[in-house]
Simulated scan of single mutants.
Amino acid sequence: MKTPFATLAFCALALPAVADVNDVLDQHILPYFHGFAVATDTLADQASETCDPALLKPAYTDAFNAWMAIGDLRIGPSESGALSIYFWPDKRGFTPRTLTRLIDEKDPVVQDATAYSEVSIAARGFFALEQMLYDPAFADYGADSYSCALTAAITADLAAQAKTLADAWAKEFVVTIRTAGQPGNTTYLSEDEALRAVYTQILSSLEFTSVQRLGQPLGTFDRPRPARAEARRSERSLKNVLLASESAYAMAGHLADWDIPHTDAAMSRLRDAATRIEDPAFQDITDPSARFRLEALQIAVQDLKTAIEGEIGGHLGIGAGFNSQDGD
């Protein structure tokens, strides 16, 4: 199945060896995966002491912020490992339905960490936890309730997933990328392939932000869909757009060893467009003026992607034939 995170279609042009994949790994990907694991561990520790939503929300915010720096990667262990951390968009409402079933049945799976790792991804990760902390239909529970135990189970599972993913990157997949083109590396047969794989993640993240994070709530002029805004309950829809864009921009800067003034300017315009958004959860877009501002932000995200394509893709010789939407 093709996704916005799929690997790129190779064009015939060879890439000059000027981009620094190791810098992307060392300065961005690896430290942020480590930070994500630390943040989720802190969240799980707090949840083991109290499941009070008001007390857990700051740690939840820190963990989600950490995730957004590397959450759009879909290569290596993140290709499948990210799915149960970040189950969104959920157009059919699987998450609330699955959580409701667990609560109604008082499923004992919450008492067994191994068993909980096998439950539906709709009841795992950030969006399941967001329901339990922010949705009035779920967040009104006592310390001795099943919902409290469920919240603790979700946080413990999230921390375990974060550690597994961080370890897989730091101990295994980083070696796969660094040894691209060497004998025995069947994932990347050349350094160019590894470079292209990292480059496409940058573009795919921006594409996902434009099409999903902004496109989902925008819907159409006649039928906007504010209820589909990412993380609207925790009012971080705008924050996620900014953090994902900043992450893509940072990785682009690490990848390039030359000046990228058009990309810098595009990022500056994106930040400026974000300051004009009044509702951080995008719930006001039924108002035409609010919709216009959100569309302007979407255009700014698309412009950042175009600037990176020109200043980095063009410099590297990735031109005609490249499509960040193509699948394997």
Rank of each mutant, 00 (worst) to 15 (best):
D41A: 11
N185V: 09
I70D: 07
D112C: 02
T155Q: 08
G314K: 08
A139D: 13
R101L: 10
T95E: 03
A128V: 12
A156N: 11
F138S: 05
Q46M: 06
A66L: 03
G321L: 13
L316N: 04
T100S: 15
E207I: 04
D264F: 00
S324F: 07
S204D: 04
Y249I: 00
D90L: 08
E278P: 05
T263C: 02
L238M: 09
R223K: 15
G317S: 04
R223T: 14
A47Q: 07
V198G: 03
G93V: 11
R124L: 06
L316D: 05
S234N: 14
G253C: 10
K163V: 06
Q131A: 06
A139H: 07
Q131M: 15
I177Y: 08
A227I: 04
F208R: 07
G76D: 08
T155L: 02
A44V: 03
E278C: 11
P288F: 13
D303V: 14
A39W: 04
T40C: 05
F173M: 03
D303N: 15
G310A: 10
R236F: 13
D104E: 15
D45V: 09
A39F: 07
A248R: 03
G313V: 07
I299G: 01
W67L: 01
L195T: 15
S268K: 08
I177F: 13
S120R: 02
